[in-house]
Write a protein that binds this DNA or RNA. Structure first.
Length: 433
RNA sequence: GGCGGGUUGCCCGAGCGGCCAAUGGGAGCGGACUGUAAAUCCGCCGGCUUUGCCUUCGAAGGUUCGAAUCCUUCACCCGCCA
């Protein structure tokens, strides 16, 4: 089956096509004229994360091919909650959700073009959902839905077999379908994209448009990103990788990509990179030939940190990593470089009043202060296991509570703490006043 | 509504009056080996002013020299009967 549309060919080459309604019809429409498409993001947290980013970027690819994106932020759907397999969500209050809507709207705006003939538009489904009365909704929208079919949805079936489901969450699919119908009416939107877990919700919308308007619109999903080791993509030991710099520092974001498993490289490059297929294939080759160089990881880290946080932050994250992981003597780094690197990694502060007899508090305390250990007990254990370095020199196993002479400070105020192979943080002695 | 079973550390899951800060597995952390990778092996894995002390075994009371373990009440979950 030959796909006849540039954007679909590209998605195909990147393994980004999971399910679709009528791919040939979609290809015809995409080739004939610019198509208006949408992908929604619910405010279930103050920030979007990497899973959302893959969806944002898919839509961005459509825009680059001349199509018009509607970035939907779910001010209404976020108040209800898409049913999860595991159990009922806790409802967030309206103020929280509207605060998150604002923040997520700002994030989304960074990834689309808002000028030109196919300028993106940000929309909020609360705008058309809030004014509708319950009676109108049940008559005009609800009448088009068969409960029998809704029960077939995977998440709903799982919930019925297990912990049960509230009517609130059960109705979620109606709201999302209503969005598609409304966007079709308002903007002529004829394509909704999303992760393959959204297939049920998306096709419900397709059905609603057909019933209400007699029009055939499209659905397209991308595969769920799976990792070679079976763990969930987009999380680390310390939690979700957020797009908000306040929740996940650009340094941590950059490190996330740098530490990607070799086996996941093809998927990650194809999903997240805007490089050409040729460039991606050559990185994949480099990764196979000389895995230790991690050329693909570096390329991903640089490209995505630049995209999400900007070129300056990407450079800073890069040079911080180079400074901290480099083999050179830390004392030979210029102070501003050291300061910048540690600021990226995280800094714990020591007040001059805490200096006793020319000594800083012991490492066990400093590790907690810098956020590298959860408690002093944990810090002592890590030291005893030989897992801690100060200024890249290993701390002796029994020295967890030994005071640290001020002479160890670099430039009179910095200490570089490392836990394990790759966790760094700084300690800064604030100037005496 | 009646009867029975359950609620243990991040998750799963033993313990059923003192030897319990609590077996085991998973996750996580550190070390060795590496490439800031994977796999493997070893160690750690409630807190602290750490030969000891403090707080944990759904919640609150009680019995006892002593309770995760016994009793009472409450909350939630799960079976069987109606």
């Amino acid at each position: 089956m030959a796909i006849m549309s540039a954007i679909l060919d590209e998605l195909q080459a990147r393994n980004l096509l999971a399910q679709s309604t009528d791919l040939d019809a979609l290809a015809r429409d995409l080739s004939a004229a610019p198509v208006t498409l949408y992908c929604g993001f619910d405010p279930t947290a103050p920030s979007l994360h990497l899973g959302n980013l893959s969806q944002i970027l898919t839509v961005r690819r459509f825009q680059q091919h001349g199509h018009r994106p509607l970035a939907l932020v779910g001010g209404a759907t976020g108040l209800i909650g898409d049913p999860k397999m595991t159990g009922e969500r806790t409802l967030n209050d309206a103020d929280t959700v509207s605060e998150w809507v604002l923040r997520i709207r700002e994030q989304v705006e960074r990834f689309y073009e808002f000028d030109g003939p196919n300028a993106a538009i940000v929309v909020n489904n609360l705008d058309w959902t809030a004014p509708v009365t319950a009676i109108e909704f049940l008559r005009d929208i609800g009448k088009h839905f068969s409960v029998n079919r809704m029960l077939d949805r995977e998440a709903v079936a799982a919930r019925l077999a297990g912990p049960g489901i509230s009517f609130t969450e059960f109705s979620y699919a109606l709201l999302q379908s209503f969005d598609y119908l409304e966007l079709y009416r308002r903007y002529g939107c004829t394509l909704q994209t999303g992760g393959s877990d959204q297939w049920g919700n998306i096709t419900a919308g397709v059905d609603l448009v057909r019933r209400a308007e007699g029009q055939h619109v499209h659905a397209l999903t991308t595969p769920l990103i799976t990792k070679a080791d079976g763990t969930k993509f987009g999380k680390t030991e310390s939690g979700t990788i957020w797009l908000d710099a306040a929740l996940t520092s650009p340094y941590a974001f950059h490190q996330f990509w740098l530490n990607a498993d070799d086996r996941d490289i093809p998927t990650l490059l194809r999903t997240f990179s805007f490089g050409t297929i040729e460039e991606i294939e050559s990185l994949e080759q480099a990764s196979r030939d000389e895995p230790a160089k991690r050329a693909a990881q570096r390329a991903l880290a640089d490209e995505l940190t630049t995209l999400v946080h900007g070129a300056d932050e990407a450079r800073a994250a890069n040079s911080a990593a180079a400074a901290l992981f480099g083999r050179g003597d830390l004392a030979e780094l210029p102070e501003h470089a050291l300061a910048a690197a540690l600021t990226e990694a995280g800094v714990g502060v020591v007040e001059p009043s805490e200096v006793v007899d020319g000594n800083l508090p012991p490492v066990s305390e400093l590790l907690v202060r810098a956020g590298l250990c959860a408690s002093k007990g944990a810090a002592r254990r890590t030291v005893a296991e030989g897992g801690v370095s100060i200024n890249n020199e290993r701390v002796a196993a029994e020295s967890a509570d030994a005071p640290i002479p001020l002479q160890q400070l670099l430039f009179g105020q910095w200490l570089v703490l490392r836990r394990g192979r790759r966790s760094f943080a700084g300690i800064r002695l604030t100037p005496a006043e």
